[in-house]
Design a protein around this nucleic acid. Structure first.
Lengths: 276, 276
DNA sequence: ACAAAAGTGTTAATTGTACACCCATGA
DNA sequence: TCATGGGTGTACAATTAACACTTTTGT
């Protein structure tokens, strides 16, 4: 550290002490308002501006063949009764990745395991009507979770929503710029299936190749040829490794071989969806 | 964010007023220190923490067949006399993208035209020894600029540095976590060449296919077969559009046809580098 | 005429696609 | 033994890669 740039003079107790972003606490009263009144004048041109930093998480999973996103219900304005991504303020000594895992665990009870990657940062000045908030969005991928998280709490309700329903009339009303964030997250997941072994993050280990294939089919909305898919996956070193056992047969059909995630981080060549 | 939660009541002037991580302004005086003294205790658990938000820009261009990054010299600690990416604080009413363009123009005199995209956000708590600073990094691509920007100023000096030299002993000492940011930016550029028409962002319009090909060769460090490259580019709709003229012949060889950037945003199928 | 760079043609190898067919299990 | 899904084989199409060859310029 150094003296170069003197940190501001304000004492610690003069900084904002307001409530969390994922405020669903009953004490959440509206003190917010007047965000613009707090916005910095030109005196901040050469120094830091009062901008809050939050993390929002797009958690995707596969539920009965559908790609679903986890959202929590809001209980206060703005967007009261609407749905929002799990998220909240970043603590001053907390790494961004760690904050994302914490938001998931604290806000929804979802285990913080599984794939987590930074998605993108959203910072339009008007994205939150109350204040200037910059949000670092994360993308999390998990296998289907036995209990739909959060539904048994009396606090804010969490639920899975199929991503297909997001634009439609019977879909949820997403708060803030969360429609954009979710859309970006879904598109990131879809395209990363092409050139990374990420599809396995949706599968509980050990998994069959059919389960892995259904991830692609759900994400891309198109069927894949099972024989060709099998060859493709097995010919990519480190995509999956055989576990040496077979799945328990269920309801007819030959039992499938079991695999777990391999060590590969990229697919060469990629497994391209036939789009354009 | 997005999540609700009234932002705290702290007055604007109580937030940090420290300098940016990339601070190189002459008015950069030392007013303080003790960053940790301001770090939030548990009282901030549910509210916004005093975190500064900055933007750093990885500006890449092609100079005499080498991929180069723009860096500016620091004139104060930490990392005094080291090199840093152009960047600075985000203003409270300023969009992140707009801030990135401003940092480029103000800090280095580089025209804010050309390709600009968000790269990733860096927020390790210890990335700046003076205070908690979260930096949204951007990636900018420009054609070779006639004047090496910033070399004639008496303020901080800016210069291009070949990305090949970055790890070596005769390369620059990059401040903060800027080595990581530059590496991520270069890798992003290299991989986006594969599946987007982004290479054209490095070319002054109108350009020849040979110039476009040299972008790939410089970025990937391997020669490409000119006939096959030509067919590939021309068979991708919207990658480039012919201008209907020929370049002025220079020093032997048939004059090349001229093209400009097309409207395509993706390459189907991609133009893969033969790696692995 | 020669060198150099642009551009065209052709072929072999590789990869992707479609689909017929066999295997193992439950009913 | 039939239905169902897993797994293998194979032929054809599409794409890529390698390189010979022609065109157009400067010297």
């Amino acid at each position: 550290m150094s003296n170069d740039a003197p940190l501001g003079g304000g004492p610690a107790d003069s900084v904002p002490t307001d409530r969390a972003p994922t405020d669903r606490a009953p004490t959440d009263r509206a003190r917010a308002g007047r965000a613009h009144a707090r916005r910095a004048p030109d005196t901040f041109v050469n120094g830091p501006s009062p901008i809050a930093v939050t993390v929002d998480v797009v958690l995707l999973t596969l539920r009965s063949g559908q790609l679903c996103v986890l959202v929590t219900q809001r209980d206060s304005p703005p967007f009261q009764d609407g749905w929002a991504l799990p998220g909240g303020f970043v603590r001053v000594d907390e790494d961004l990745d760690a904050s994302a895992r914490r938001q998931l665990t604290e806000g929804t009870g979802v285990a913080a395991s599984g794939h987590l990657e930074q998605l993108r940062t959203y910072g339009r000045p008007d994205r939150d009507p109350r204040a200037r908030v910059v949000s670092v969005a994360y993308l999390a991928l998990l296998p289907n979770l036995p209990p739909p998280p959060g539904t048994d709490r009396d606090g804010p309700t969490a639920r899975w929503w199929p991503v297909e329903d997001l634009g439609s009339a019977d879909g949820p009303v997403l708060a803030f710029d969360h429609p954009t964030i979710v859309a970006d997250g879904v598109e990131r997941a879809r395209s990363k299936l092409e050139y990374t072994p990420l599809a396995a993050a949706f599968c509980e280990e050990p998994f069959t190749l059919a389960e892995l294939r259904r991830v692609y089919e759900a994400a891309w909305g198109a069927p894949l040829d099972p024989p060709n898919f099998r060859r493709k996956v097995l010919s990519t070193p480190g995509f999956v490794v055989p576990v040496g056992a077979r799945a328990a047969p269920r309801g007819g059909g030959r039992p499938a071989e079991l695999y777990r995630r391999g060590s590969a981080t990229a697919l060469h060549p990629p497994l391209l969806r036939r789009s354009v």
